[in-house]
Design a protein around this nucleic acid. Structure first.
Lengths: 165, 165
DNA sequence: CTACGTGCAAAGCTTTTGCATGGAA
DNA sequence: TTCCATGCAAAAGCTTTGCACGTAG
């Protein structure tokens, strides 16, 4: 295995971010590192306010202000490390866009649950469409909405047992 | 051709809106009619502010206030007459969702141009995915971004003719 | 010493809402 | 008369920005 291959496979999100910043003459400050570390700690969907709430008033640990969180999220998006996947409660919802298989989402209008599903078939179709239009595709955002399996089941009353109360 | 078929095919957007409002105990006021007429006058994409600007200060013609435009657009969406297709300049972009073939959009990051393309293939894939998840799909929104054919061509200088100036 | 970053508070924007007035059934 | 609607202005809520102060190189 060549060193080049090894590197390209094992570059961490933080490293990728640092490289990205370098090309723009920017620095990987501790605040920026705090944000990306937090964001990449789990694979959950998140919005800006989630991290503002957690990082802004943090004591005894690296923190980051509201402005910095917003500014860093924008950088992470530019760097291709996260992407906007939907909008909920008037907020942009992000997720990792690096080291995670491509997928899209079913979004339940009732409970808000977002279910991921792999999108190879869709990606294929889009490649073809883009080619036909001479369009240089860089990504896509697909939100499928409707009612999820749980919410579309009738009330059910849990076998009427609760009626005994 | 049965009368039912004839009707279902020929119902205008305004009629469909009136029916929708009736089922909700609401009225087709002249303001609401002004908005839907304006919106359905062309097949262009639009955002709320476009119609606010045109209808709010209109003189000698039916007008509608900012509030009414927003409120009516929401109703039109609920009625299935328009749908949000993208977001541009922090505004929701709408288009007709009735009497117009299903499609999605290629969105150029440089010039903002939105190119429509038919989406039967994608719809098929989504039907299958939804079925597998017991998800009752009601619609979707697919934004494909990248650089359009025009913008990805190098500067070109229009055959150098302009250099003569 | 210079340039880049941060934090704070204030501003910006789109979209929603409270409320008094008006009008249709 | 009784709702339903409108218009206005103000509110709401997310995101961005101006500015002064720090700090890495």
């Amino acid at each position: 295995m060549s060193e080049l291959t090894a590197v390209s496979v094992t570059v961490s999100a933080v490293d990728k971010f640092r490289e990205f910043l370098l090309t723009k003459g920017m620095r990987l400050t501790s605040e920026r590192e705090t944000v990306i570390t937090a964001v990449y700690a789990t694979h959950e969907h998140f919005d800006a306010d989630l991290w503002v709430a957690k990082l802004e008033r943090r004591k005894g640990a690296p923190r980051a202000s509201r402005s910095t969180v917003y500014r860093t999220l924008r950088l992470l998006e530019e760097a291709g490390l996260i992407r906007k996947v939907a909008r909920a409660n008037d907020r942009e919802v992000y997720e990792h866009d690096y080291g995670y298989p491509q997928h899209d989402h079913l979004i339940c209008k009732k409970c808000g649950e977002m279910t991921e599903f792999p999108n190879e078939a869709i990606a294929e179709v889009l490649e073809k469409v883009a080619a036909e239009h001479g369009f240089r595709m860089s990504g896509h955002r697909l939100e499928v909405d409707g009612i999820c399996a749980v919410c579309s089941r009738p009330p059910q009353r849990v076998h009427r047992k609760l009626d005994m109360i």
